[in-house]
Simulated scan of single mutants.
Amino acid sequence: MPQVSVVVPVYNAEKYIAETLTSIMGQSFVDFDVHVVDDCSTDDSAKIVQEFCARDARFHYHRSPSNFGGPAGPRNLGIDQSSGGYIAFCDADDLWAPYKLELQMAIARDSGADIVSAVVRDFADGENPAAFVRPDGEVPLTSISHGRLLLKNWIALSSVIGRRASLMTAGPFNSSRTHIAVEDFDMWLRITGSGGRVIRIGTPLVHYRKLPSSISASKSMMVRKALNVIGEDYDRRGKGSLFRLLRPAHWILYVGTSAWMRAIRREL
């Protein structure tokens, strides 16, 4: 049984999936397996993934029985098919630093955190991302509380490793259409809302590829969806009426914080 299982949902990602899987294959931490879940792609994604499976026995290909229309369903299938005590997530067009899992597993073991995430740097499609620079010395760490998450989703999915037990207790990713592109935010709020601990590494470990066709490309839509998820969190805690009063303030804070992180620091 591997220490870490990596779950990668794929849908028509033939242009990028080989580069993504190569960055996973090249990890300095080697005790992992990879579960790529194909959401009924119509391009050559399956062929490319299966070539990786033939080269490396740690890689496994799964095809969903029907198209989910979003990544939450394939992620849930990947978790079900995996056995690692920790689960790591990576989208089909993102890139990992070669020491990502090594650094995160050391921090996860030392801290006992339920989720370990990291800074993510974005880059435009067709642009060469800046080289990863392995931190020299003590790594900056930040605790991401439930309250901080209510102001911004500080946890980029492709940067996450999480305890299987914590993810399973929180429940599956919400695969409804209303939660597409915010199903991960919903998961982090559920984990931290029940006392789960999240640590964010303050050094970039993931390159996030910005695509015009990305589900999350519409900023105004993403803010509306994020606020809906925050509202559901207030409802779970019996504070729905309070959120309705605070929604305008949440909008301003969420938009302002996200804009600053992207424009000034190019971080997610």
Rank of each mutant, 00 (worst) to 15 (best):
I144D: 11
R55C: 10
D125I: 08
T20M: 14
R164K: 03
L253M: 07
A259C: 15
E14G: 00
D122Q: 12
T169I: 00
G231F: 02
S258F: 06
V198N: 12
G196V: 02
G193I: 03
P74F: 00
Y208W: 09
H146K: 07
L103F: 02
R58Q: 09
R148C: 09
I17H: 08
N153E: 12
H146F: 15
M105I: 14
S216E: 15
I191E: 07
Q81Y: 11
V30R: 04
R121V: 13
A156L: 08
H179M: 14
S23A: 14
A18S: 15
V7T: 02
G195Y: 03
A263W: 08
V160K: 00
D56G: 11
Q104L: 11
I161F: 05
A18T: 15
A54I: 05
H35T: 01
V8R: 03
P135Q: 02
I79N: 05
D38N: 09
N228R: 12
F89D: 06
R163Q: 14
E183G: 12
P98Q: 14
V133N: 13
R190T: 12
L103S: 05
V49H: 13
R163E: 08
S214G: 12
S145W: 00
C53A: 15
G69P: 08
L205E: 10
R121K: 14
L205P: 08
A131W: 05
M25E: 13
G70R: 03
V34A: 03
F52I: 09
V8E: 00
H35K: 03
